[in-house]
Every structure is written in structure tokens, then in C-alpha cells.
Design a protein around this nucleic acid. Structure first.
Length: 482
RNA sequence: GGCCGGUUCGUCUAGUGGUUAGGACUCAGGGUUUUCAUCUCUGCAACAGGGGUUCGAUCCCCCUACCGGCUGCCA
């Protein structure tokens, strides 16, 4: 019977995983957190499980309400939707207390009357003697009488777990079998002297209460896992499956921190990266599908995602590759999609232009941009009438301030019908007349019209902006520069 | 110090007891293009080191080095 139950429950857990992402609201959602959230999310979306969001707000000193909103909106922007409302860890205090009482009552935890200062001294002494420090188990098995005496003295105490003899082993889905000798683990603290429960304890209780089947988190928690397993076991709670993800590092190979370029998800939104690009790139960090393909839609990633293909070694976040991924996705994006993404960043962009104009402009910009911000900026340059020119470039491009090309171009445009073939013909003629290469002629015209020397096809820009705008810009340019 | 992990081009990675160790990004060069970008072609570039096991190790075992985590009344 029991075996059958175990079988049933493991089957259930296989089919309907419940996972959680558990950020603490002490800062913005950063790239590393986003990756953890993503892998949790991918796993549940693939297996029709539940992706829960738990806000670990028990560090009252550092937690801030505004960060909760920011984390949620960043996840939302990425499209990593969680199931149900988010859960506040601070709402589960009574369960933490109950578990603590239970462990105490069952003699699986005990009150330890060492003060922090005493322990610090012992720790220091051990260090000096180059011996490994162990918390003494002096108070582990006090008689009721001794215990009462200490309590009557109002002596402060912490609550520690009685770590049993033996070893603790588990199979991590990424790192494989891990075994730790329990004698390497101190009777660690479950509750501080002010009664508040510690991280390892709270996480365990919450995960159990939320019926988490797969704990997917950063590998900085790998070494905490045996402790948490000891807590599950002390409380006879089912132990979830653990999946530790290798860290994401900065370009210097160190843990991602403020020192690195951009770590905040919000910054990538502002820079104009699309969520699908971020997700595609992040998914490739530490994971890869069984193919040489690298550009995927989100659904394709979900389809192919497997936890057991995750890498063990940490990965460095490479903005150059992100740019490439982003450019690839941009080229696949529809005009409608681009317009929406642009509006997200800048509501006033191209507001005085017709829908048709915007479409044609985006068609010109899409293939040469890495992100939405690139499109906005290049577009702005093309759309706005120049107010000033770089003098250095101007002298460089117009040797001896000779504006013959521009003047000829203006009179040519005024004389002919404004069509693509006429304009091309005109440029050809000027090239011959002025004895300049086609490239040199176009460079001069491009610069006069847009102030820059790069960008989409010149003739297409001219057609798009229209005869009046072009002639007026060229005339102003000549006035300005002579 | 102790414990637990990790290590394939600069970066992300594939891979196998016998391979010219594959792909992608970056970089360099060529082609396409009016420019820039795209696209395309070519090139540079890696099994951390040392011992074993083996006919043969990048792959299996051990040691070393380096990196990371834990060793907190932080999370």
C-alpha cells in the first residue's frame, strides 16, 4: 500500500511539476534572476505544471515594496507569467512557528544558549589553531532540569537542528549525485535569539507548504541543499527534486554585480531589446537544444527544453552575442510588431508621419538594426531636418567646400519628375559631370540630407521623404555651409 | 584551513576509448552593396597540467593548479 502511494505520488509529481521563483525584494530583477525564472518557467510550460512566484520579504531591513512591483513588471515584460497570485513569505510566519514547535517537541531541535560572542571567540580560536570549527553540542541534550534553569535565568537562546549521524545524499538533476557526511554539518540555527527563523529553515517550510516538486535555483544554493534536506527529513516532509543552475557571470568572469555593464532587466527593455531576444539568448546560456540552431521562438524553446541538458559550468554573459540574437529576431519581426515595440519606448516617435510612411521607413531600418532603440535613433535622424553638421566631416566630404554636386542635384530635382529612375539617372549624370565616383556623389548628397554617412539606400530615403522635404533640406544645407 | 562542486577556441557550446575535435558569436580578410548594416565566402583560434588504466585517451581513475559555493543569530 505504502509503495503504491509512493508510486502514485511520484507519478503525479512527474506529470505536474510545481516550481517557484523566489526573489527577495531587495533590488531589481537582474539577468541572473531572470535566467532562473526563465528555466523554472520553461520547465513548467513544457510539462503543464505550475510556476509560482514567492516574494521572500522576511529581511525587513532591506526589503522594499517598490522592488516587488519592479520584479513583477519585469517578469511580466519578459512574458514569464506566474500562476495565481504571488505569495509573500511573511504571510507564512505561523507555519514556520508551528514547524519549529514541532521539531522542539519531538526533540529534533534544541535550544542553544551560546551567545554570538562566545561562538565568535571559539571560531577565532579554532581558526588560529588551524582546526576546523564545529559548533559545540553542549546544549544538545540538556536535562529538563538544566533546561528549566537556563530558561528561568532568562538566558537568550537560538534553536538549532539536531543533525543526525550518517550522511545526506541527493541527486541533483544537473550536478548528479552529491553526498555529504553529516558530521561536516553543524547543528545549524533554525531560529535566531529574537525568535525569527533563518533562511534555510524558512525556504524549506515554504517549499513544502507550496508543494514544490522541483526546486530550480542558482548553484550558489547547492551547498545549502543538504541542510534543507535534513529539515525535510526531521519533519517527515517529502523532499523535492533539486535542480541547480550554474551562475551567470560578467565579462570578467566574476559574479554579476553592479560593476558590470547592465545587469538589470529593466535596462535591456530601455535599450530596446525585445523580450523574445533576451529569452532566446538567456536560454542558450547553460542549455542547448540537440541541434546547431540558435534562433528560436519562445514556443520552440519550450518544446525543446530539457533540464538534463543543462551545463554544469558557469556562463559568461556576452552582450555581443545578445546583439546578434537580437538582430536576428528583429529581422523576423513584423512591421506591426515593431510599431508596438517602438510605442512602448517612445509614444511620440514618427507621430507626424502617415502610417504608410512609417511602414516604409521601418522596412528600410529593420534589417540594419540590433534593437528597437537603434531603429528609433536612425529613424529620428532620417525624419528630422538637419540643424547642424559636423564641420570636420563636412570639410572631409566636400573637398574645398565645393557644393557643385548639391547645387546640380537641386536643379535636377526641380526640373524632372520625382521618380526613382529619374533620380538614379540624375545622380549618374552628376557623377560624370563633376568627375566624381558614384559613391562620392551619393556620400555628399546623403550627408547633406541626413548629416550622416551610413544608413539605408539613399535613393529610397529620398523617395520616402519626398521632393519638397529633400529640396528644402538641400537648399538649407547650401545656405548654411557657404 | 575543512567540505562540496566545476574546468573543450577570447565567449556560448557539440562531441567520442581511435574524429582533420564540429557549430555559433567576436575578430581578420574577400565577395555583394552608393555608404553602413544585412547576406555570403575564407581564415585565426580550444580538450588546464601531471601521472596512471589501455594497443590507443579530450573522453575512465588519481593527484595538482585555477575558479566558485558552503563553513554566519546573511539571504
Amino acid at each position: 500500500m505504502k509503495a503504491l502511494q509512493r508510486f502514485e505520488s511520484s507519478r503525479l509529481r512527474m506529470n505536474y511539476p510545481i516550481v517557484r521563483f523566489a526573489p527577495s525584494p531587495t533590488g531589481y530583477l537582474h539577468i541572473g534572476g531572470a535566467r532562473t525564472a526563465l528555466f523554472n518557467w520553461l520547465f513548467t510550460r513544457k510539462h503543464q505544471g505550475k510556476f509560482l512566484l514567492r516574494i521572500e520579504d522576511t529581511d525587513l531591513e532591506r526589503s522594499e515594496e517598490k522592488y516587488i512591483d519592479q520584479i513583477i513588471s519585469a517578469l511580466d515584460w519578459l512574458g514569464l507569467d506566474h500562476d495565481g497570485d504571488y505569495i509573500l513569505q511573511s504571510n507564512n510566519l505561523s507555519s514556520h512557528q508551528a514547524a519549529l514547535d514541532q521539531l522542539l517537541a519531538q526533540g529534533k531541535a534544541y535550544r542553544c544558549f551560546y551567545s554570538k560572542e562566545e561562538l565568535d571567540q571559539l571560531r577565532l580560536a579554532a581558526e588560529k589553531a588551524k582546526k576546523p570549527f564545529r559548533v559545540p553540542t553542549t546544549y544538545r541534550d540538556l536535562s529538563q532540569e538544566e533546561l528549566n534553569k537556563h530558561l528561568q535565568d532568562k538566558k537568550e537562546f537560538t534553536i538549532r537542528l539536531k543533525v543526525p549521524e550518517g550522511e545526506t545524499r541527493f541527486e541533483d538533476l544537473v550536478f548528479g549525485n552529491i553526498t555529504v557526511q553529516n558530521r561536516e554539518i553543524d547543528d545549524f540555527i533554525l531560529a535566531r535569539s529574537d525568535g525569527s527563523p533563518t533562511y534555510n529553515f524558512v525556504v524549506t517550510i515554504d517549499d513544502a507548504d507550496m508543494k514544490i516538486t522541483h526546486v530550480i535555483r542558482g548553484d550558489d544554493h547547492l551547498a545549502n541543499t543538504p541542510k534543507q534536506i535534513l529539515i525535510y527529513e526531521a519533519l517527515s516532509l517529502p523532499v523535492p527534486t533539486f535542480v541547480h543552475l550554474p551562475m551567470i557571470l560578467g565579462s570578467d568572469g566574476k559574479r554579476l554585480s553592479k560593476r558590470h555593464a547592465a545587469t538589470n532587466v529593466q535596462e535591456y527593455k530601455e535599450k530596446g531589446y525585445q523580450p523574445k531576444s533576451i529569452i532566446n539568448y538567456l536560454s542558450l546560456l547553460g542549455w542547448n537544444p540537440d541541434s546547431n540552431e540558435e534562433i528560436f521562438s519562445i514556443n520552440e524553446i519550450i518544446e525543446q527544453f530539457e533540464l538534463n541538458q543543462i551545463q554544469k559550468k558557469p556562463a559568461i554573459f556576452d552582450e555581443k552575442k545578445l546583439n546578434w540574437v537580437s538582430g536576428q529576431h528583429l529581422q523576423k519581426s513584423s512591421i506591426k510588431e515593431l510599431i508596438e515595440a517602438i510605442k512602448d519606448l517612445d509614444l511620440t516617435w514618427a507621430e507626424h508621419h502617415s502610417e504608410d510612411f512609417v511602414k516604409k521607413l521601418l522596412l528600410l531600418l529593420r534589417d540594419r538594426s540590433k534593437n528597437i532603440q537603434d531603429i528609433i535613433e536612425l529613424g529620428n535622424i532620417i525624419m528630422s531636418n538637419p540643424s547642424s553638421y559636423s564641420q570636420d566631416e563636412l570639410h572631409n566630404i566636400f573637398k574645398g567646400n565645393n557644393f557643385e554636386v548639391i547645387e546640380n542635384f537641386i536643379s535636377g530635382l526641380e526640373a524632372e519628375e520625382f521618380t526613382q529612375s529619374n533620380i538614379e539617372q540624375l545622380i549618374d549624370n552628376i557623377s560624370i559631370q563633376c568627375e566624381l565616383s558614384l559613391g562620392a556623389v551619393m556620400k555628399q548628397i546623403r550627408f547633406a540630407i541626413t548629416t550622416i554617412t551610413y544608413g539605408p539606400s539613399l535613393v529610397e530615403i529620398i523617395i520616402l521623404l519626398g521632393q519638397d522635404t529633400i529640396i528644402s533640406r538641400l537648399k538649407k544645407f547650401v545656405q548654411h555651409s557657404t
